[in-house]
């Protein structure tokens, strides 16, 4: 296991290194005048000269890359053109909101996706399977921004059940303000026993989280169905049945356990999808997370901000995949005990 861990960690570091090469290329090599991009649309000549000097843009590319790497590692990700603040702190300020949304959506997706996938595999080829497949494929075909708008019409306008947008009602700040602990409003309100704020934060979280979960539910359901079908076809499932093990145990205790590792594979991809998916959902629901910041940055050609987000996204993705691989290895005694 430790050898596996070491090797896998090594690969992750290599990939991260490669990722930084890509962002470096996009940031410094491809644009004809990176300095102008770093200052923004109304750059004056002397400013460009100063930034060119500052960023070392007139130095050889390999040296520039070393500088770039050094800056990234020391947390100097440049200054946002839009907000005039360091990119890294802009990102870190908004990260909790996005993570809260992302994690809630993933929990919803894992629970429902797995359940649907198992059902589908159990009823292979029969009507329930067809329905689940349709739901799963519809899930991955749904534009998140559109689904979000539909849910707003339904649950806010028509049924008046859930808030339209935002993370919290504005008056909560005056009635029962949330003490900052983790940056996750629901958790902070919960641990501080602030029930008014908790209810409000949770209500605000429902629609965006469900919207964001639609795509992963589809992916996870499809993957679970495939890996469950594979597991259910194995000799050891037949022998479990031959030994009179109840069907529910066979499916939910045994086969599902065997189907878990391949399902985990898709979880990494799912999280990555949801990270970009969250951008669109955040726009629709005015969720004050990274998405708003990212889209603003893209539209205003806020170059340092865009590259910071790309780097963060890639780094996050690499780490998620690392975690998934480790979890998979741990779940398989053949690897764990090797």
């Amino acid at each position: 296991m430790s050898r596996f861990l070491g090797r896998r960690l090594g690969t992750a570091i290599l990939v991260l290194f490669g990722v930084s090469l890509v962002t470096f290329t996009l940031a410094r090599v491809i644009p004809s005048n990176p300095a102008a991009l770093y200052i923004g649309p109304r750059a004056r000549a002397e400013e460009i000269a100063r930034v060119t000097e500052e960023l070392g843009l007139n130095r050889p590319l390999p040296l520039q890359y070393l500088d770039y790497m050094g800056d990234m590692l020391t947390g100097d990700w440049g200054t946002s053109i839009g907000t005039k603040r360091p990119v890294l702190s802009e990102i870190l300020d908004r990260l909790p909101a996005t993570l809260e949304l992302l994690i809630t959506a993933m929990v919803i997706a894992v629970v429902f996706g797995t359940l649907l996938g198992v059902l589908s595999a159990q009823w292979r080829g029969r009507p329930p399977d067809l329905v689940v497949r349709l739901i799963a494929i519809a899930g991955v075909s749904m534009p998140a921004f559109w689904l979000g708008l539909l849910l707003q019409v339904l649950f806010f306008r028509q049924l008046d059940l859930l808030p339209l947008s935002g993370r919290l009602d504005t008056d909560i700040r005056f009635i029962s303000p949330i003490t900052d602990v983790t940056g996750f409003f629901t958790i902070d309100a919960f641990v501080t026993g602030n029930w008014v704020a908790f209810g409000d934060a949770a209500a605000h979280l429902v629609l965006p989280a469900v919207t964001l979960a639609a795509y992963p539910i589809g992916l996870i359901a499809r993957m679970t169905r495939a890996s469950m079908l594979e597991a259910l076809g194995q000799d050891y499932v037949r022998s479990a049945r031959a030994y009179g093990i109840g069907e529910r145990t066979v499916v939910y205790r045994l086969a599902l356990r065997n189907a878990l590792p391949p399902t985990l594979t898709v979880l990494g991809l799912t999280l990555a999808y949801s990270l970009t998916g969250a951008f669109f959902v955040e726009i629709v629901f005015n969720w004050p997370g990274l998405g708003q910041f990212a889209v603003d940055a893209l539209l205003n050609v806020d170059y340092p901000a865009v590259m910071g987000i790309a780097l963060l996204g890639a780094a996050g993705y690499v780490l998620i995949n690392l975690a998934v691989d480790i979890a998979q290895a741990w779940l398989d005694p053949r690897v764990r005990l090797a």
Binding site: G18, T23, I30, A272, L275, T276, L298, A310, G313
Partner: peptide, 25 residues
């Protein structure tokens, strides 16, 4: 193959967004 790894190391769409930022909308 390592080159494809690098491209696939970015969450889908995020790389496209970064490229659009470099090329312009």
């Amino acid at each position: 193959m390592r080159l494809t790894d690098l491209f696939l190391a970015f969450p889908p769409l995020l790389l496209a967004m970064a490229i659009i930022a470099a090329l312009g909308p």
